[in-house]
Simulated assay, not measured.
Amino acid sequence: MTVKCREANLERDREEILHFLREHLPVHSDEKRFEWLYLQNPAGPARVWLAAGASGRIIGVEAASPRPVWFDGAPRRAWVLTDLCIAPDSRSLGPALGLQRTCLSGLSASGEALWYDFPSRSMMAVWRRLGVRPAGSQARFVRLTRIDSKVQGYIPNRLLAGAISKVGNLAINYSRASTRRLRDYEIVHYNGQFGEEFTELDSRTSTHYPVRGRRTAEFLNWRYRRNPIENYQVVVAKRGSELAGYAALAVLETEWTIADLHPLEETGVVSGLLGCLHELSRRSNVERLTAPVIDGSLLAFHLTRAGFLRRESSPVIASARNWFLTHGDRDS
């Protein structure tokens, strides 16, 4: 198959990109998402590459979205690879391989050496062909807060299922003391815009991990307050008037996902925030809390200690090692 790849012009090729993504991307892709993700990112506009067949018809799209990061304590810009999709009648290795090579070459030619990707299983074949090995893995940690739907799946009798669920819910919600609230901190819902105190917290924690995404107020407002796809709740931990940490949650009806958990100090603050999130989810009749985090990270340790169980994991591909990445670092 003859495939030609080129970088798109977001203004000139906008309608063609949108039309292709609407047809082939497995997430809700519309004008609002395009504006937010491709054009309104405070780190700059996205870059997009198109693959065309011999007839000139677009058969594939890939994008890279800029992300501000801390790299060994210094501010840098990285790119998260996203929205790779190939038309069903062209899903051979060639188009995806061509797009990936063109994307990486384009970033490299611009001096953009930092990038990362959360590849699907099928995409791993492309990375293997390129000779790129995973830089780590991201695991999904889960803590159940209610077992009603699971019990109902096995026991059709509602009265019996309800009685069993009641006992089970009590057991899973009070079995761990490690998510207790701490007296030194006030942990509350935060409904406002992110202010400069969040940027200051981010700067003070720039060396907590070798490589991690920056969390300035500007980025947080874009990622969590202006996101047209997901609904987020935020809780903050304060010690007096000082911001000591926060957590952002992607909220669905039965499942909440911890997108970010950012403490000033790991000891104490993480435990208090997790305890608050658990209590909020329990009161909201949420069935489970989930947290996708990098295997072997300190946060993974705290989640295990707080009663979360490690489930499946998936590879992370990156141009450098020792990244710390959460749900808040991905766009698809």
Rank of each mutant, 00 (worst) to 15 (best):
D30C: 12
L303R: 08
Q233H: 13
Q233P: 08
G240A: 09
N191L: 03
E31I: 12
R133C: 03
L170Y: 14
K150S: 06
D83G: 02
L144R: 15
P68C: 05
R14Q: 08
S284G: 00
L309H: 07
Y246W: 02
R47K: 15
E35G: 00
E11G: 13
R143D: 00
G56H: 10
R225W: 09
F71M: 08
Q100F: 02
W49V: 08
I187E: 06
R183N: 08
P75R: 12
V211K: 12
S175D: 11
A171N: 00
F198D: 01
E265S: 14
P228I: 01
T216E: 06
W256N: 13
E7G: 04
G195D: 13
A125R: 15
A63S: 15
E15W: 00
E218A: 14
D329T: 10
W323S: 13
R223Y: 04
Q100V: 03
L104K: 08
H278A: 13
S314G: 14
V80A: 14
I86L: 07
P263N: 09
S108T: 15
A291R: 03
E230Q: 05
W323Q: 14
K32A: 15
A259G: 03
E312N: 11
E287A: 14
D148L: 00
S90V: 01
V236Q: 11
N227C: 06
T216A: 09
R6N: 05
Y224W: 02
G195K: 01
S65K: 07
S313M: 05
V48E: 06
L18G: 02
G94F: 12
M123A: 15
P119K: 09
L104I: 10
H28R: 15
V126P: 07
R129G: 00
V126W: 02
M1C: 07
P292S: 03
E35V: 04
V80M: 07
R180C: 08
R282L: 05
E230L: 06
L18T: 04
S122R: 15
A163I: 07
P228L: 01
R282Y: 11
R129E: 10
G328E: 02
I147G: 06
N227H: 12
C85S: 09
E242K: 08
G136Q: 04
W222K: 08
L277W: 10
A87H: 13
E15G: 04
W79V: 10
L261M: 09
H208R: 12
T82P: 01
Y190K: 08
R33M: 12
V251S: 03
G106P: 15
T207H: 03
Y185N: 07
R143L: 00
A163P: 03
R214Y: 02
L10N: 14
H278D: 04
D329I: 04
V236E: 02
D72V: 00
S29V: 02
G153T: 14
Y38N: 09
S55A: 11
P210K: 12
M1R: 13
A247Q: 05
Y116N: 02
C103V: 10
Q193F: 00
V151F: 10
S203N: 12
G106V: 12
S314V: 03
P292D: 05
S110H: 13
P66F: 04
S29G: 02
S55P: 06
G60F: 06
N285D: 10
G44Y: 07
E62M: 10
V286P: 05
L303F: 06
L299Y: 02
L21N: 08
G106H: 12
P315E: 11
T254N: 14
S314M: 14
A64D: 09
V69E: 04
E31M: 06
T216Y: 10
R57E: 14
D83L: 10
G328M: 04
